[in-house]
Design a protein around this nucleic acid. Structure first.
Lengths: 157, 157
DNA sequence: TATTGTTATACTCTATAACTATA
DNA sequence: TATAGTTATAGAGTATAACAATA
């Protein structure tokens, strides 16, 4: 970890000062999130995936038979918004929608071979794009950041 | 920093697994950001402020004479979306809109006494709400997180 | 010709209400 | 009666186009 102790200047290049806001966790989380997300979105565009659809696809790959409601819970999204995403994934033959045998209200979602392959490529590309976006951090700092972000949500979710 | 080394489980309470997505920086940034922001928004609601309007107000307090365009640049927002926020702040008598004497296309924004006082209370309440939202972190971990988030954007903004 | 502030508008994301079929 | 999936729609938040005033 190099020179993490050196405080960045409070003023931006154009001379705007704003100590209070610049020291808020939320402000810094948002800025970093925007930076990382735009990089990931760009990396996923060639796969015709958005971050949310990649995430849903990955969830289905890792949890065969998962239902739309479970995806909604896991991603903290509303059910209606999941439907459109599943529609897209199914139309592209990335996932199969089968009625659950035990509860016929539910769908049991599974990824196709094509879906599993795309998931692997897409998550790898997204992770690489994220790493480029945060290349100001060393590998150790990245792991530390990840650990801290995970810990933030301990007990609160 | 206590037990940051202990890895959180990969599965959520309902048994959903998803190692790839759960280890993406962007995913964790978003989740933490959502948590912190909703806490801050709730704390600002009694002041009838959103995070973005508190941020703009704070920017005006700290930079008397700042123009809407400069606010847009600093907050990475489009100019049209700033107008509505300034309208609100002005209607509530928190900021004054005066034509710049040197460039009459520009507005020179300054905070009123009422605006400065509200800024102090609002930023303090927001900061306290953020601290509650991330109370899983120690004070040292919070400072470390802040330093890492600032460093992420070094050279890239 | 370029820039500031502005209006109107569109687009995306997310949230809510209500329906159907199953339980 | 409650829940899963769905449809339609509403509401944020953000982005784009075009304009008047000024540089």
């Amino acid at each position: 970890m190099d020179r993490l102790d050196r405080q960045p200047q409070d003023a931006a290049a154009d001379g705007i000062r704003d100590t209070r806001v610049r020291n808020l966790i939320g402000y810094n989380l948002k800025r970093s999130y925007m930076l990382v997300r735009s990089s990931a979105e760009a990396a996923l565009a060639p796969h015709e995936l958005r971050v949310v659809s990649m995430t849903a696809l990955s969830l289905i790959v890792d949890n065969p038979g998962i239902s739309p409601s479970q995806i909604a819970d896991a991603l903290q999204m509303e059910r209606p918004n999941i439907v459109v995403i599943i529609d897209e994934l199914e139309a592209r033959d990335l996932v199969d929608r089968a009625r659950s045998t035990t509860d016929r209200r539910r769908y049991a979602l599974t990824a196709t071979l094509k879906g599993r392959r795309l998931r692997d490529r897409a998550t790898a590309d997204a992770a690489a794009a994220e790493d480029r976006a945060i290349s100001a951090l060393t590998a150790e700092e990245k792991e530390l950041l990840l650990a801290l972000l995970k810990k933030v949500r301990r007990d609160s979710e």
